[in-house]
């Protein structure tokens, strides 16, 4: 048997629905149709009345999730694409993220954001929104890079008493497979050493972990041992694991698929600079997408975001510094 990243997300939701009567799913086309990507396939039938089609109203979808959470439910919201969470942004950052702080009433909602680029998706179906949400206090932001994490972290997201922004990567939906779903998992909030190495650290998350691993594989044939840190959760950020890796290697490249201004990679570099400056043998480096909207044509798209090749070049450069 083999399970894809997308199927793991479906299975996690099925399990959450089965185990907790407070869970329901609300989003566009998630009902009988099973969702734009089929992440809720068959769930409406299996759990009648608990998987609800929503009007195209991201603001009201999130607002209703907050109201339901106040009343003790645990809604899972599917945004059709991460990009379309912007009309619901206000409710996420001003309503969901402030509720507990203002009232001591928790807001256990999970907002699934199908994120990131696939070839040909263009400016409005490819975005990575994690940095925008991570900026706001009161939110937890998860960015699973593996099938196992997609499953276990989604279950954890639903169980957590705070609003979780769950950034699932569309490129990984079908590309990643595993044999079986995990029975044990690392907790969210902890980074993972995806590949150990002593010469240089690459910090990455979500789909970029796989680009980094491909680059590391290539570099190992040249005798360079790269350590790859998979952040798993970008908020909170597991600074300890990052610093420990930098302590081992002395050189670090931070890779993200999002736009270059600010964001997760800048935050990681800032923490390394402030907390691990003395551990560095070279200036910490960042690699992001280009500072333009995400292009449509595959030729442009594959040059816009970081890839194994551009990571390889960045690491080679870093080793010369």
């Amino acid at each position: 048997m083999s399970i894809t990243y997308l199927e793991a997300i479906r299975e996690a939701q099925a399990r959450a629905l089965a185990e907790d009567p407070r869970v329901f799913i609300y989003g566009q086309d998630v009902g009988d149709f099973g969702g734009a990507f089929k992440a809720t396939k068959g769930l409406a039938k299996e759990f009648p009345g608990r998987v609800l089609d929503a009007p195209i109203s991201e603001d009201a979808i999130v607002g209703a999730a907050v109201g339901a959470a106040i009343e003790g439910m645990r809604p899972i919201i599917e945004m059709q694409f991460a990009d379309f969470s912007t009309p619901g942004f206000n409710q996420v950052i001003n309503q969901a993220a402030t509720l507990y702080w203002r009232t001591q009433v928790p807001c256990p909602i999970t907002i699934r954001l199908p994120s990131g680029g696939t070839s040909g998706s263009g400016p409005f179906h490819s975005q990575c929104m994690e940095a925008i949400y991570a900026h706001y206090p009161g939110l937890i932001v998860m960015t699973p890079a593996t099938v196992e994490d997609a499953y276990s972290m989604l279950l954890e997201a639903v169980a957590i008493d705070d609003p979780v922004i769950f950034c699932e990567h569309k490129y990984l939906y079908y590309h990643l497979k595993t044999d079986r779903l995990p029975t044990e998992a690392m907790p969210a909030g902890k980074a993972r050493i995806a590949r150990p190495g002593r010469d240089v650290t690459i910090v990455a998350y979500s789909a970029m972990v796989h680009e980094a691993l491909a680059a590391a594989e290539e570099l190992s044939t040249e005798g360079v041992e790269v350590e790859v840190v998979d952040l798993r959760t970008v908020k909170p950020l597991d600074t300890d694991t990052i610093i420990a890796s930098v302590a081992r290697t002395g050189r670090v490249l931070v890779v993200g698929e999002a736009f270059p201004w600010g964001g997760v990679t800048a935050e990681v570099v800032a923490r390394i600079a402030t907390e691990g400056f003395g551990l560095l043998d070279a200036p910490p480096q960042r690699l992001n997408a280009k500072d333009t909207p995400i292009p449509y044509h595959p030729n442009l798209w594959s040059a816009h975001r970081p890839t194994a090749n551009s990571i390889l070049a960045a690491v080679r450069n870093l080793l010369r510094l």
Binding site: G49, N94, T103
Partner: peptide, 25 residues
């Protein structure tokens, strides 16, 4: 008794959500 946020119009869907939850229950 829901505490308003400043953003006008934002409380309507929250009330909807509470009512949906009560219906679930």
């Amino acid at each position: 008794y829901l505490p308003m946020i400043s953003h006008l119009g934002a409380m309507i869907s929250v009330v909807n959500g509470v009512l949906m939850a009560k219906r679930f229950k």
